[in-house]
Computed example of a mutant assay.
Amino acid sequence: MVRMSAEERRESVIRAAIAEFAQRGYFGTSTEAIAQRVGVSQPYLFRLFPGKKAIFAAASLRCIEDTCRILEDAAEGLEGDEARHAMANAYVRLLTEHPETLQMQMQTYITVAAAEAEGDHAFGEAVRAGWMKLWGTVHLPLGADVSDTTTFLAYGMLINTLTAMGFPAEHQVWQGMYPSARITGRLEK
C-alpha cells in the first residue's frame, strides 16, 4: 500500500469536504463525516487543519480557484465575445459535470452571511478576496470593461440560482439566456 503525503491527504480532505459541505452545509456537516470519507481519524484531520472553519474555508476557496482556472483556460488567447462564449460554455460544463461546485458555492454564500451576522468577518474577507480574483479572471478577457464583467458575473449568479432551484432546461425562465447556459436536468444533491 502506497502512503500518501500530508499534502496529498490535505487535498483528499478538501475534496471530501466539498462533497460533504455541498450536501449538508457548514452546520449540518460533521468533521467525523469528512474524516470517514477520506479514511482518516478526526485527530489526523485536525493535524492537517486547525478546525472545521479552516476545512470549510479551504473547500470554499478551492471551488473559487477551480472556477477561476476553468475560466482562464477557456478564455486563453480569446477576447470579447469569443472569450465570453468560451467562458460561459466552460462554466456550464463545470456545473453540469461537477454539481457539487454549485452546491458548495451556495453553501459558501449562506455561511458568509451567517458568520458576518455573528461578527466573524475573517471568512467573508477571504471569500470576497476569492470573488475578486474571479472578477479579475473574467475582466481582462472581456476587454477590461466593468459593465461587461458585471453582466457576465450577474448571468453566472442567475444560472446558479435557476439551477439550484431545479428549473429544467426547457422552462421559460431560461429564455433569453445564452443557449449553453441551460443546464439540462436538476443538479443532484
Score class of each variant (00 low, 15 high):
residue 2 V to K: 13
residue 3 R to K: 13
residue 4 M to E: 06
residue 6 A to S: 12
residue 7 E to A: 14
residue 8 E to S: 05
residue 10 R to N: 03
residue 11 E to M: 04
residue 14 I to C: 02
residue 14 I to N: 05
residue 15 R to V: 09
residue 16 A to Q: 04
residue 16 A to W: 04
residue 22 A to G: 07
residue 24 R to S: 00
residue 29 T to R: 08
residue 32 E to N: 02
residue 32 E to W: 14
residue 33 A to Q: 15
residue 34 I to H: 09
residue 36 Q to K: 03
residue 36 Q to C: 03
residue 39 G to V: 10
residue 40 V to W: 04
residue 40 V to M: 07
residue 41 S to L: 09
residue 42 Q to M: 07
residue 43 P to W: 11
residue 46 F to Y: 14
residue 46 F to C: 02
residue 50 P to Y: 11
residue 52 K to W: 09
residue 55 I to E: 03
residue 55 I to T: 06
residue 61 L to R: 15
residue 67 T to F: 02
residue 70 I to E: 15
residue 74 A to P: 10
residue 74 A to V: 13
residue 77 G to D: 05
residue 78 L to Y: 13
residue 82 E to Q: 13
residue 83 A to K: 12
residue 85 H to T: 08
residue 86 A to V: 04
residue 86 A to P: 00
residue 87 M to A: 06
residue 89 N to K: 14
residue 89 N to L: 00
residue 91 Y to D: 05
residue 93 R to F: 14
residue 94 L to T: 04
residue 94 L to C: 00
residue 95 L to G: 07
residue 95 L to N: 08
residue 96 T to F: 07
residue 99 P to D: 11
residue 100 E to Q: 01
residue 102 L to R: 05
residue 103 Q to Y: 10
residue 108 T to A: 03
residue 109 Y to I: 01
residue 110 I to P: 02
residue 113 A to W: 14
residue 114 A to I: 07
residue 116 E to I: 09
residue 116 E to V: 09
residue 117 A to H: 03
residue 118 E to V: 06
residue 118 E to W: 11
residue 120 D to Q: 14
residue 121 H to F: 11
residue 121 H to I: 00
residue 122 A to Q: 02
residue 125 E to G: 09
residue 126 A to T: 07
residue 127 V to Y: 05
residue 127 V to D: 10
residue 129 A to P: 03
residue 129 A to Q: 06
residue 131 W to K: 03
residue 131 W to T: 08
residue 132 M to P: 11
residue 135 W to R: 14
residue 136 G to N: 07
residue 136 G to K: 12
residue 139 H to C: 09
residue 139 H to L: 01
residue 140 L to C: 14
residue 141 P to K: 12
residue 142 L to A: 10
residue 144 A to K: 15
residue 145 D to N: 13
residue 148 D to I: 10
residue 148 D to R: 15
residue 150 T to G: 00
residue 152 F to Y: 01
residue 155 Y to D: 04
residue 159 I to L: 11
residue 159 I to V: 12
residue 159 I to A: 05
residue 160 N to E: 02
residue 162 L to W: 14
residue 162 L to Q: 03
residue 163 T to Y: 06
residue 170 E to N: 08
residue 170 E to Y: 14
residue 174 W to P: 03
residue 175 Q to G: 05
residue 180 S to N: 12
residue 183 I to A: 10
residue 184 T to G: 09
residue 184 T to K: 15
residue 185 G to N: 05
residue 187 L to R: 13
